[in-house]
Design a protein around this nucleic acid. Structure first.
Lengths: 225, 225
DNA sequence: GACGAATTAGACAAGCGTGTCTAATTTTCT
DNA sequence: AGAAAATTAGACACGCTTGTCTAATTCGTC
């Protein structure tokens, strides 16, 4: 059925690949049906695996669900911080680079498959597993906000922005980024690239109108950087 | 078990009151468990009604679910437009009145029980009943945006704001209002009044910094009004 | 008080989903 | 090739849920 081109090197068919496959299928099904409506036979079928194998890998349904959430939150947080690392610390053109950053954030974190899944799982099962998602919140959004706030504070320090409360600025930046996408996201739709770009452009324009220094032009960093 | 103080006047015990009671209980259970996990026995018990009565009023589970969604969306939209009607069209103190309006919006529409239920139901079952929630979107958010946009356009016309795209301003206003509450809402928590007030204040300050006329002071209304 | 309609508790069949077990097969390692 | 481990299909028991049905009871009305 399948020839492995690296028979010596690659064990990755049976065990770990199946594990991944199960987690992905489970994520899909849990998201579409909710925990109560999810069906292990269906998960096994979508993963191309027998039901027993699902039980072998993750004891029972609860355990499988926990594994799915952990898997997604880990990937989500990794993507989040990877994208945060691309924040324009020394911008030549602040507006354009913030727009590009906002687009990356939307594409790689908020609007992608993991983002959609996580949002839905949290909304659906958040009250059933409070501590589970409390962990996620502390490790994900809270740290994201601090990290983003620190970047804005630094930009403020160089005079490019005028920010009293960097944490607030970070939250509002993220809120504005999604202002145009909220309903689509709520309904589970995935915005087009054009929509994400427009949304980012609108958000950054308003953000900068609110947070750019008001009177005298302070533009020291763009040349030195 | 229960004495009716107006035995002549009030028939409203058997039929219509039970109907309401069932819808409320069903809303609670559908929200907590999702459609798949919801249990009609539990709904009947929470409504203080026998299972058969549930089936008498709404044929089957699907029908009951549709009735619940219709009930909530109707109430939600009514509350939304009632609150929109309190928009400060002729403000003495624009910032303070916008803050008060934002608080009303959050308290009466976004953070209340119906708002929470609707958000969760849409997220949970939106893909199962696309046309159902498409109707909601067209009747609710879309009309809300237009209405709010029209108000902002009017304020811009009087010179109190400087708005190029009123629809965008409306979307961003709503996004900013929830910037500080997003995670709590996602997790199904209900923010305290103090949190809602702070969130509203922060939102309006930033909104006005972005949308208040920039250079020459156009402040005709505050004195004349 | 009596009638009719609604409600109730409970039993019931049918179907589905979980989780276990077994025996046969495939895959991986030596 | 041969041993050990993982995977598979299928059967199975068990419990839960939906939706129907019936007989008894309550409620509102006349």
């Amino acid at each position: 059925m399948k020839e492995n081109p690296f028979p010596h090197f690659a064990a990755p068919r049976s065990h770990s690949a199946k594990r991944t496959s199960i987690l992905e299928a489970a994520a899909r099904v849990f998201c579409q049906e909710g925990f109560g409506g999810a069906n292990i036979d269906l998960i096994a079928a979508e993963a191309g695996v027998s039901r027993q194998t699902v039980y072998n890998h993750h004891g029972d349904k609860d355990n499988l669900f926990l594994a799915v959430v952990k898997d997604i939150t880990d990937r989500m947080n990794a993507g989040l911080f990877a994208t945060l690392a691309t924040f324009p610390d020394h911008p030549k053109d602040l507006e354009a680079e913030l727009v590009a950053f906002a687009i990356r954030l939307n594409q790689n974190c908020i609007c992608n498959r993991d983002g959609k899944f996580l949002r839905k799982l949290i909304q659906t099962e958040g009250e059933r597993y409070p501590e589970l998602f409390a962990t996620w919140r502390d490790e994900g959004p809270l740290k994201t906000w601090s990290a983003l706030a620190a970047r804005f504070a630094r930009l403020a320090h160089t005079g490019l922005l005028e920010v009293e409360d960097p944490d607030l600025a970070a939250r509002q930046f993220l809120a504005l980024i999604n202002a145009d996408l909220q309903v689509a996201l709520l309904l589970g739709e995935t915005p087009t690239e054009a929509e994400m770009e427009t949304s980012a452009r609108n958000a950054v324009r308003t953000f900068l109108r609110a947070y750019r220094p008001r009177v005298e032009a302070a533009k020291p960093a763009s040349a030195t950087a």
